[in-house]
Design a protein around this nucleic acid. Sequence first.
DNA 1: GCGCGGGGCTGTAACGTTACAGCTTGCGAG
DNA 2: CTCGCAAGCTGTAACGTTACAGCCCCGCGC
Lengths: 370, 370
Amino acid sequence: MDKPSDKGPSETRPGKGPGASGGGSGEGGRPDARAEAAGRPTLKTIAFMTGLGVTTVSRALKDAPEIGVETRRRVQLVARQVGYRPNRAGVRLRTGKTNVISLVLNTEEQIGGFVSDMIYGISEYLAQTPYHLIVTPYSRNNDPLEPVRYVVETGSADGIIISRTEPDDKRVRYMLEHGFPFATHGRTEIGTEHAYHDFDNHAFAQEAVKKLAGLGRKRLALLAPPSPLSYHHHMRNGFLDAMEEFGLAEVPFNTVTVDHSIERIRARTLQLMQRPNPPDGIVSGGGGATFAMVAGIEDAGLKVGTDIDIVSKQSAKLLHLFRPELYVVNEDVRLAGRELARSVIALIDGAPAASLQSLSAPGPVLARGE
Amino acid sequence: MDKPSDKGPSETRPGKGPGASGGGSGEGGRPDARAEAAGRPTLKTIAFMTGLGVTTVSRALKDAPEIGVETRRRVQLVARQVGYRPNRAGVRLRTGKTNVISLVLNTEEQIGGFVSDMIYGISEYLAQTPYHLIVTPYSRNNDPLEPVRYVVETGSADGIIISRTEPDDKRVRYMLEHGFPFATHGRTEIGTEHAYHDFDNHAFAQEAVKKLAGLGRKRLALLAPPSPLSYHHHMRNGFLDAMEEFGLAEVPFNTVTVDHSIERIRARTLQLMQRPNPPDGIVSGGGGATFAMVAGIEDAGLKVGTDIDIVSKQSAKLLHLFRPELYVVNEDVRLAGRELARSVIALIDGAPAASLQSLSAPGPVLARGE
DNA sequence: GCGCGGGGCTGTAACGTTACAGCTTGCGAG
DNA sequence: CTCGCAAGCTGTAACGTTACAGCCCCGCGC
């Protein structure tokens, strides 16, 4: 019923009668002279210059063995001379390969956000590859799964890097189910292996407690990451393990996390310090949060290094300038970026996920000038 | 002359003997049933579902007037139902439009880097557009022009955002010459109009000096940005203008800029404060740098708010926690990101560059709790 | 002298999209 | 009745790349 009319597909062409099947070839074979014109060189340009076919040029450029060695060299020489760069859209359309890695980011304001370092790290690694870095954002009101689904569904990248990983992360489940290459900043507790890089927050918290215990502190509090996140548990477990080891008592410091606003952390800390048995030592999971926390402590009229000691993780190196009495452990987020980038690419190239898992040991607990 | 070869288009297909040119019909006209199969829907899928031609569907989806109103609605309905999303590679290959904005970044470690905010701002704006954000890095040893040239030459983005703008910026000249849409964070002194967003560093420095003069400070120093950058001059001129207005003397504080390392700034500040006539007021162009500078001041045994007053610009809001005696002026980098994104897109859409220039007035000089 | 194999190269089609140049059909004017 | 025209739809080619299925020719075995 909705068939088109009966005429053949090519009757408007100037062509050839019946039995055309053998003909052609010859002159039609070479790309015409216009290829030589302005604009970016394409395979066609090189084909024209070398007198070869586009296919040959394509194969020669990727060192295919069925192209003669001399031809290969000749093509590569010409390609280099004219500054040939494969057209990404062409490759992508044909092969589905995007040569893009997507970094999925929560764009909420985060104090002391280490996102720049992460990006620098990733860029640093990608610079030696043909990959580009694309930033895919989501905001609090959106489902964190949404950007991931978008990238996977539209195939707009070959791999994804996510952070703020949860123990049972649905983004991870989704990507695993879809066989999509990804690496997470932080571990999960999902059975299936996947690529990750993580800072050893368990060890960090242990070392921090050990330090405070060594300083003679008895009542310790932990300013932890938000409880949904994986590293909340790592840090908390490390904290509790060491607390038990040293026989110390925890002063609860919940209702607030390293992700809360400066005002909130500050107010809550003040409150905490004014209660009957305030902590005399705090382990802080975030550099920015430590600023706010110290402010709260001082609001209460107490002094860091005297009334209380603090061991804090930091990614920017500003805490010692802030209060020299603070003890700090540095987290190298740039390194994390590099590792994550390396992992996704390796994964894309077929490496097994289990071999792409790394844990970054915390450096020593540093006092002032160290 | 460049007619296609003479043979029929379908000789390798399973069909049809000689004389095929008239026949064929039927099945050839409509996209075949396989279009219906799995995978992402394409125009072909919708064409098949609606019984229309691919062209019609394409036109209908962009509301072309030559498609009947009812057809248009029908196509759009189906497209929505099946979750059609144009294939970016297809569009890009055909039209050259990438729907990508490139943010060109120096990946040097910068203290207190505001890059995250910039990215958040850009993302925030791009979220309501079809554009993606791609980060194109360069490191110190590379020519800053290189990434720009790369993007322009390979057409890997429709527009570029750059920062660290210089008065006679060669990247800007290059993009102007090539008619490539771009927006700069910071102004230039190049004759040709171009899109920019800038913080009014002249006004900032003026207000800062005014504040310090009001506090009775007489010998002021300026911790400025690196001299090649445009905003070095703005800030410096604002500083000097106000100094003259209030009849104050400048204490030279060169050989160091807001971009130097913490150690360098700290050491240089100590040195400065130990000289015969140290400044009793400082204007600082960078939040991170102020941390280091204050450390240097305190190394010299002096106290901020007593021996010396400081007015500093900041993008993260940590300075008041650091030393409550500091006076601060906030710079909203996220806003800058939003503005810059808005500008490039407008430019791409044909708006005149002269209408896409904005200057962000500094907020008031804030004391402690304010 | 012929057939065969393979090295070295080739064209075609396809990925999904859009610009372009038609093709129908219906309708009103002549 | 024919023509012209416009509305509405159509197929083809092309963007640059790669998978695929050849093609040609040479040298070798028999």
